[in-house]
Nucleic acid binder design. Structure first.
Lengths: 201, 201
DNA sequence: GTCTATACAAAGATAGAC
DNA sequence: GTCTATCTTTGTATAGAC
């Protein structure tokens, strides 16, 4: 008989990934160790190695999960006919705005991008995929909105999509260093304004 | 009699700082070691410790020098009456554009900001100073240009200054991860366009 | 699946000779 | 100011008991 539990005891593997992800968002991949994760989880280092034999395995799994979460939401959003282009970019902004509410967190992939050449090759590859996927998705959304006369862009959709990603990543990075909680919100405001200026499209 | 040499044998201390800075820009502070620097310089680890007893000392000296270089140029620029506001922001862009030409480099302080909580307190403090100084300087330049009718801004000078910094840092970060050499140049183009739109000020 | 124990290399750092 | 030698701690990783 299958067990039914109210407590969603998410399983050790997932909890390791949760902790590792958060620690990387705080300090980067190079700075964290099995000891850090073991301490926080309340187990021994060897237990982490059982689930993720090498640190590269762990890092890879963290990115993979993060990426899937993002991509799932994005794909669902862009295939939903009920959404306007404006709605879609707003959905895209939401995780960044959420990260902005924590003074100590930045995007996982932003943190990793800062120490790129210290990462295992496989992680570098996934990281590149992350940004490429986002750029392709945003370009699509912007292009569609542009054709419907919903947006006004100061450059090509490709370039503007790329700028949005850079701006969001950079805003998170700098807001944490300066402790300025409004940085990301204001960045989003400026993009929104530029996409649909008061003058009308 | 003082020696005169054509070869500017900059001294071991400076060469250590050069190497350390470059390595941090490539891989971050946590990822580099005395062994890495010693190998590249062709000396033993102990020699590095002679010049910088602890890694925190070294990291601090690297930021300090980087910061002074930036601040020197910025102060000179903003106190030069011959420059227009446009000239001044162009001067500000130039080091970022130079970094953009190397596919593997990002801003030292961008790299460090990505691993903030792994850094010694003193480094965190200097890092915050770096971004604060830049924001103050840019705000000044934008405010002056605005009053002279040279610029048009979509938000307050403070907020727009902050956005510019975030965008430049993020553009460097993402350009390296994706290998897209145009990212920074296009970001600069978009800012320039927004500062002085075709419609005239 | 988690534990103890341990191996092994690397990292940061110091002492003392030259 | 740089070297050799050494110390200590930490980090990654594995073996084997429970």
């Amino acid at each position: 008989m299958p067990k039914v539990s109210v407590i969603s005891d998410t399983g050790t593997r997932e909890r390791i990934l949760d902790i590792a992800q958060r620690l990387i968002q705080l300090s980067g991949y190079s700075a964290i160790s099995y000891a850090d994760i073991a301490r926080e989880l309340g187990v021994r280092k060897a237990s982490i190695h059982y689930h993720f034999p090498s640190k590269a395995d762990l890092g890879l799994a963290v990115i993979e999960r993060y990426e899937k979460m993002f991509e799932g939401v994005m794909t669902d959003t862009s295939s939903n006919r009920a959404y306007s282009g404006r709605d879609m970019v707003d959905v895209y902004f939401s995780p960044y705005l959420e990260l902005a509410n924590d003074p100590d967190l930045i995007c996982l992939c932003g943190a990793l991008a800062g120490e790129l050449s210290a990462l295992p090759r496989a992680m570098q590859t996934l990281l590149k995929r992350f940004f490429s996927f986002h750029q392709k998705w945003l370009t699509q959304v912007l292009t569609a909105g542009l054709q419907k006369g919903e947006f006004k862009l100061p450059s090509s959709p490709e370039k503007y999509a790329r700028m949005i990603i850079g701006l969001l990543q950079g805003a998170l990075l700098v807001k944490r260093a300066t402790g300025d909680g409004d940085q990301v919100h204001d960045a989003v405001r400026i993009i929104r304004l530029q996409l649909a200026p008061a003058g009308g499209a």
